[in-house]
Computed example of a mutant assay.
Amino acid sequence: MPSSTSVLEQLTDILVRVVDCRADAVVPEATLRELGTDSLTIVEMAEELGRRFDVYLSDDTVDGLVTVQDAVDAVVDHDGATAPAAGGRVPTTLESPARPEHDEETVRRRRLAERLFFLFIFIGAGLGAVLGFGGSALVEATGIGAVDLPSISNPTTAPTPTPSATPTPEPTETTPARPNEPKPTIKVSKPQVAPGERFVIEGRYPSLGEGASLQVQVKDEGTDWDDFPIETTTRDGGRFKTELYTSRTGERQFRLLDKRSDKATPSVTVQIG
């Protein structure tokens, strides 16, 4: 399960975007209502928090969220609840600067869509029943049901299958690595930022080309590399660019890892605070 520190960082980012509160106001003892949330934004916050850590927060759990610490504990001590089969989370994008919309009109449209869905199911079930009764009546009227079909006799001996020869795989040659292949590059927009201030990491991973997925990793003094909850996709020529945010102070190192090859870019250092 994720650490309390990483959950608090992501929760701070979500609340800053959703209710436009100050980052330094998001402390464990603060209540969500004090930060400017209402019933709609609490649900939206819980959905986004669950999406970022790949967990499902049930309705009972969401209804019990009062403080920031409650929300952190709901993810760290997740009870294993899973989303309903017919349900689904509203997709969000971490790297998108736009704030999610939340109003009564959105909720009204969502409820209307659910009602239409169940109405279509009801109509489909009714049509299926009508067609089933009609088919039964047609069989009785034509007498097809009274036809005696001859029985199928089993063969006395089953044919012995002829084993097929397993083709011998042809040897393949391993493509040698290109010694002059350009190495990955990386740079940061600001070497020092305040807690809660956004900064950009960009660079190029030439050997990946376009459409490769890169995982952002972070390392603090005295610790190993750990996954930061952000991924980005390379563009033409292996170029990548992503926006980060963290409220944890101190000197932190960042890099991007290609999980398919387990190879990473060089690291950059950012002073937080």
Rank of each mutant, 00 (worst) to 15 (best):
F122S: 13
V43F: 03
I186R: 00
A83D: 10
E47P: 01
G143R: 01
R33L: 14
P229E: 01
K241A: 13
S213L: 14
T175F: 06
R235A: 15
L214C: 08
G128I: 12
L214W: 04
D236L: 09
K183W: 10
F53H: 01
Q253N: 08
T172I: 12
F199P: 04
P97W: 03
I201K: 05
P191G: 14
D236M: 08
A85P: 12
P206D: 14
G88R: 00
G134I: 10
R109D: 11
T174Q: 10
L208M: 00
F118D: 11
M1E: 12
I186M: 09
V76T: 02
L127R: 08
T172L: 08
P155V: 07
E210Q: 12
P167A: 07
R52F: 06
H102G: 13
V200H: 04
L49G: 01
E47Y: 02
K219T: 02
M1W: 07
T265I: 07
K219W: 05
K263S: 15
G209N: 00
K183A: 15
I42S: 06
G135P: 06
A212G: 06
A194H: 09
S58I: 03
V193G: 02
L149S: 06
L127K: 10
K190D: 11
D20K: 15
G211F: 07
E140I: 12
G237K: 03
A146W: 11
E210F: 01
A264N: 05
Q253R: 15
E95Y: 11
S58V: 01
L257Q: 06
V193R: 06
S213G: 13
G209M: 03
L112R: 15
A23D: 08
G132E: 12
T232I: 03
Q253A: 12
R22K: 15
K187Y: 14
D258A: 09
Q10W: 05
L138R: 13
F228L: 03
L112G: 13
N180Y: 07
D236I: 04
T61S: 09
V72L: 00
D258G: 06
R89V: 11
E251T: 15
A74G: 02
T223P: 00
T249V: 15
S261C: 10
T31D: 05
G145F: 04
S267L: 05
G87T: 04
T142A: 00
S247E: 03
S151F: 11
A129C: 10
L11F: 04
T168G: 09
I152L: 12
E221C: 05
L208W: 01
I144K: 13
